[in-house]
Amino acid sequence: MQLSGKVALVTGGRQGIGAAIVERFLLEGAKVVTCGRGARPSDMASNIDWVQADVSCSGQMELLKDHVVTHYGALDVLVNNAGVQIEKTLVDTSDDDWDVLMGANAKGVFNAVRSLLPIMASGGSIINMGSVSGNAADPGLALYNASKAFVHGLTRSVAVDHGPSVRCNAICPGWIMTAMADSAFAVAEDPAAAKQDALVRHPAGRFGTPADIANMALWLASNESQFVTGQLFTVDGGLTAASPLNPSLF
């Protein structure tokens, strides 16, 4: 029970990686609040505190802060997981696409940290969701890639400006098998071949699961990482340790 007595807020905890982090934090004894744009999902477990809130809206993040203060007093762990992906090149991207994607992935992290950092307990941990595509590009994901590079930069700034009271780190997932990953592969001329190509380039021999990312999030949330701040943690099964060449070619 590594998070016994801690209060954690995970944005975008309805599905995918966010849901795995919520589930793991609960198992480790945390009280978990999560939020999303929709109403509380009907199948959500009763021990999860759901707040309908959109990270791209600063007013709603302020209301979320009030909710946390009222019900829990303070916050120990903030996981900025909410994010969207739009599969377009730069020239295909519209103004609306920009607002949606940068609103959630960039402004969303900004809004959440700005609202919630003042109510974080001393020793608190902020965990942002970056991406390996914030360091090297995935094709057809121009704004997504750029938004993740923003997250990487903001992670370091928050760590520098707001230590020692809080720590701030980012996780850079690689291919994690979620609906979002399938949408990313869909930009390929031959999605099945692209997926196979990616798979053979994983030294770990498999794609990641949301639980793999939750493992890292738990460590960063826990007291095991008390001296860790301002860093990016790649969890990609070794994918980006290798060049983009497909070893099966040789």
Binding site: D138, P139, E189, A193, L239, S243
Partner: peptide
């Protein structure tokens, strides 16, 4: 540009 990318998907 080889290592600017994670993977080439338009082979």
């Amino acid at each position: 540009g080889l290592t600017a990318q994670v993977q080439q998907m338009r082979l």
